[in-house]
Amino acid sequence: MSERKALLEVDNVTLRFGGVVALNQVDFTLYEGEILGLIGPNGAGKTTCFNAMTGVYLPTEGQIRFKGEQVSGKKRNQITKMGMARTFQNIRLFPEMTALENVLVGTDAHNTTSVPTALLRLPKHWREERQSKARALELLSFVGITGRSDDLARNLSYGDQRRLEIARALATNPSLLCLDEPAAGFNPAEKVALLELIKKIRDSGVTVLLIEHDMRLVMGVTDRIVVLEFGRKIAEGTPEEVRDNPKVVAAYLGVPDAA
């Protein structure tokens, strides 16, 4: 395992908002080709960690390196271009664009057509449009919503919207795909289908970071798991190791379940 190349290194990251410490010296590494689960009870700092990685927040201390390059301080669209893509916990598609157009916005991340080229319809415009459209349709069928390409995103069912978000993120051609609670609101059958999709994504060569608090889902699909609680990393290891870790058990079961 040590042979594998590090893709994303979260190096002692601390993040404070005023007096609140949202992340406290969080430290883990994500290797190429794996599916890493980032789990923890509600409010553990999962999404904050995620936001720091994608450049939404600047860490107070520590570094985040992606492919050996420091992420913090980079523009968000540049981070995407470097090969990190994400979905959102509460779906954030472009509701008034069609499914196809949503994915095209993703493919556009690597296109270079700008105003002059588009204005004059130079060959580059046509070439990029053709390639992007082919790729976008391919992705729509990859995530399983082929027939809906001309529907407005807002008119898609909830499950299809989640899938479309994944397709849009994949369209940016990422080496790392970060999924923020992709199964939220899914029924068991949909969750199974999602697991298959995540595996398929990994098999296509994309590393996956999965944030989730549904333990069963995480156990079934991840290669390794990092557990956060109150902004600290309390465990890391294979699903089996993590499951048997008393700290994790305490974090999940020791606290009376609010629900």
Binding site: T54, V56, K75, R76, N77, T80, K81, A85, R86, F88, R92, L93, F94, P95, E96, M97, V105, G106, D108, A109, H110, R168, A169, T172
Partner: peptide, 13 residues
């Protein structure tokens, strides 16, 4: 539609 999401999808907003 959503400036933040656009930026995170690689649009140089």
């Amino acid at each position: 539609e959503d400036e933040d999401a656009a930026e995170l999808m690689g649009v140089p907003t």
